[in-house]
């Protein structure tokens, strides 16, 4: 029985280790990301009997990661500005997406911009765009209604696009972190 459980765990959960780590890495620094991932898999092993075979194990792991993240947040409050209520609902249409805001962005630049996206939007954005979970699955992971997921994904993309576009809007020398960002490419 024990070996069977361990075998099932190794087959179902362990293949997602790299994905979970990459996700955690977008939430915190390397050391904390490792702690988050280890705690996530410890809990996953502990409660593995509650996992239904055949369901999306990755989504299940992200839900655990979300709980670990919330628990850690309670113990070590993060400097996160709460989103205003109006931001949590409604979809902002992409009226101004024609211009090619996304130049040949480098990955560090994108990560830096992503780190500035508010936490709830970042979660939704990563779950939708990187992990390609359905809105239903994201709603389960984030423990919120589907309408909220829709809004968070939309606003997350908008915010990220705006942050990436920012260096272009101003002169290069005037933008805070822009100069070294541009130097990365040369």
């Amino acid at each position: 029985m024990g070996r069977g459980r361990a075998g099932r765990f190794e087959r179902a959960a362990l293949p997602h280790l790299a994905d979970v780590y990459r996700f955690a890495r977008q939430l915190s620094d390397e050391q904390r990301a490792q702690d988050l991932v280890q705690e996530t898999f410890l809990r996953a092993w502990k409660y593995f009997d509650s996992y239904e075979d055949g369901s999306n194990c990755r989504a299940w792991l992200y839900r655990i990661l979300r709980n670990v993240w919330n628990d850690r947040g309670r113990r070590q409050p993060r400097l996160e500005i709460p989103l205003p209520e109006r931001e949590e609902s409604g979809v902002e249409p992409y009226y101004d997406w024609e211009g090619e805001f996304l130049r040949d962005e480098l990955s560090p630049e994108i990560e830096r911009a992503l780190a500035q996206v508010p936490e709830q939007y970042r979660w939704a954005l990563l779950l939708a765009d990187v992990e390609e979970l359905s809105y239903q699955e994201i709603a389960r992971v984030m423990d919120c209604p589907i309408g909220t997921v829709m809004s968070r994904v939309n606003r997350g993309r908008r915010t990220l696009a705006r942050l990436l576009r920012r260096p272009v809007a101003g002169a290069r020398g005037e933008v805070g972190e822009a100069p070294d960002v541009y130097n990365l490419g040369s």
Partner: peptide, 29 residues
């Protein structure tokens, strides 16, 4: 543009690999 943003995001996130000590620690669980 939206699809490009998604692709760029995926690429940026995929840069990170879990360190070996984390892999073995999780395997040991």
């Amino acid at each position: 543009e939206l699809l490009r943003l998604r692709g760029a995001l995926k690429l940026a996130v995929s840069r990170h690999e879990p360190p070996p000590q984390l892999v073995s620690a999780v395997r040991d669980i």
